[in-house]
Design a protein around this nucleic acid. Structure first.
Length: 424
RNA sequence: GUGGCCGUAGCUCAGUAGGUAGAGCAUCGGAUUGUGGCUCCGAAGGUCGCGGGUUCGAGUCCCGUCGGUCACCCCA
């Protein structure tokens, strides 16, 4: 074996074993997701898959692991600029929003994107170095009902593609000010229990104490069970915000659960954070997640308006969806039994295709049995036989592959009769 | 980046106390010289991930390396 795909990547091809390797499923998921987006009046945005590294560093936060642990695929271009392949979709979308003055248009702007994201991490089930996210950003408003719409949109897409055993978790982590009061309190509490925490949490306690809630260690979680709750520190405004989000979710019929331990990896989140998990996945059980980011747009040089978005992993959606049998089927397969018949088959196939009827033929010069086997495997509805007998009579034999019934159809004056016979 | 497990035919795997490789499925051909899904017969297909070492001899033992996988970290 000389060449392999890069570590942590995969190919999409006919006959792929894993659901995310199967081309038909990608076509299916993207089409369904686009339908749902369109019904919610979202427009597509396409931004580059690389940006200045600074943009990602600013948005993710200096303390985030994407930056600290060097999880970005970065490179220097020929002009000595530090660039990086995008680890997430929000920064590029927000940058474009500001760069093209989209805040001057009627607000909010409702955007969606589909595309590859990159993170230099060790691969495991549901986590790849290049993965694809379907994401959404609503920019220019802080209306809590928008939060509800965005969460419901995430849920609807998952429903549309068949994600199983899903639960949507919701939390409100307040604004920056609330957190600046809460964080020291939490830190002080954790300090008292330092001996019971795992080493990762101890390290994180100082830089970003909220993140200790993400820990999977039992002891740490036991300590956190007695920790001060952020809900007790929320301002009146923040408390109202969550309440309205929940009302909106109820109105839209989106089942959800509050989870006070839900914090997210990006520092820019404010107020609403949410996560959709599926029990059908392994350790990487988050199918899609997101949150509100009210300070981010102004931080990047735009107006002081709110925004909210989510990213949902297509690979994880496919893994969490019931095995879809998206069989590609063919209308007509030509079986040719004489060399001269092959040209006629091509001509007829061309005519059928122009009428929107799918057609294929044998290119291997193989025996009849092999050709019928292929007609069967491709799921063809009809096999059209062109042999010496047919050539002599200027007709073709149309075989219904399901019933086995056969019919002679004239082809002397073109494919007209064949089209009529085979069209449904 | 850390750790466990694993790398033998296209796929799933077997390979017994070290004696230079097998099965099932898939593919191709035939039984059926004009007919698929079932059955039967046959063929093709492998530098046993790669590199070293031990040995008369290594798929099998040892070391290294690369890759895969799952988990941690983190995250979609």
């Amino acid at each position: 074996m000389s060449y392999r795909g890069p570590r942590g990547t995969y190919d999409v091809f006919p006959g792929g074993r894993e659901p995310y390797e199967r081309a038909e499923l990608w076509t299916f998921v993207e089409a369904r997701a686009r339908e749902v987006m369109a019904r919610h009046n979202y427009s597509e945005i396409r931004t580059p898959i690389f940006e200045e590294i600074e943009l990602f560093a600013r948005t993710a936060g200096e303390a985030s692991d994407i930056v600290v642990q060097k999880e970005m695929f970065s490179f220097r271009d020929k002009g000595e600029r530090e660039m990086a392949l995008r680890p997430e979709g929000t920064p590029g979308a927000v940058r474009a929003y500001i760069e093209h003055n989209l805040y001057k248009l009627a607000q909010p702007i409702k955007l969606f994107y589909v595309g590859p994201m990159f993170r230099q991490e060790r691969q495991q089930r549901g986590r790849y170095r290049q993965h694809t996210q379907i994401g959404v950003e609503v920019l220019g408003t802080s209306d809590p009902l928008v939060d509800a719409e965005v969460i419901s949109l995430l849920y609807s897409i998952h429903q549309a593609v068949g994600v199983e055993d899903e639960v949507v978790y919701l939390n409100n982590i307040g604004d920056m000010e609330t957190r600046s009061i809460y964080a020291p309190e939490l830190r002080a509490y954790l300090q008292k229990h330092v001996g019971e925490l795992d080493s990762d949490s101890v390290a994180r306690m100082d830089t970003n104490p909220l993140r200790t809630f993400d820990s999977k260690h039992e002891n740490t979680q036991a300590v956190l069970a007695g920790a001060p709750r952020i809900s007790a520190y929320l301002s009146r405004e923040a408390a109202d915000h969550v309440a309205t989000v929940r009302e909106g979710l109820d109105a839209l019929g989106v089942p959800h659960e509050m989870d006070e331990g839900l914090v997210r990896g990006f520092d820019y989140y404010t107020m609403t954070v949410f996560e959709a998990k599926s029990g059908a996945l392994g350790a990487q059980d988050t199918v899609g997640a997101g949150g509100r980011y009210n300070g981010l747009i102004s931080d990047l040089g735009g107006p002081d308006v709110g925004g909210i978005g989510f990213g949902s992993g297509v690979e994880r959606m496919l893994l969490a969806a019931a095995s879809q049998e998206a069989r590609v089927s063919l209308d007509v397969f030509f079986v040719t039994l004489a060399p001269e018949a092959r040209i006629l088959a091509m001509k007829l196939a061309g005519a059928l295709r122009e009428e929107g009827i799918s057609a294929d033929l044998d290119y291997g010069g193989r025996g009849m049995r092999a050709q019928f086997k292929q007609a069967d495997r491709t799921g063809a509805s009809y096999a059209v036989i062109l042999g010496e007998d047919e050539l002599a009579r200027s007709d073709c034999t149309v075989r219904d592959m399901a019933s086995g019934e056969e019919l002679a159809v004239p082809v002397a004056d073109g494919a007209k009769d064949l089209i009529r016979t085979v069209a449904r």
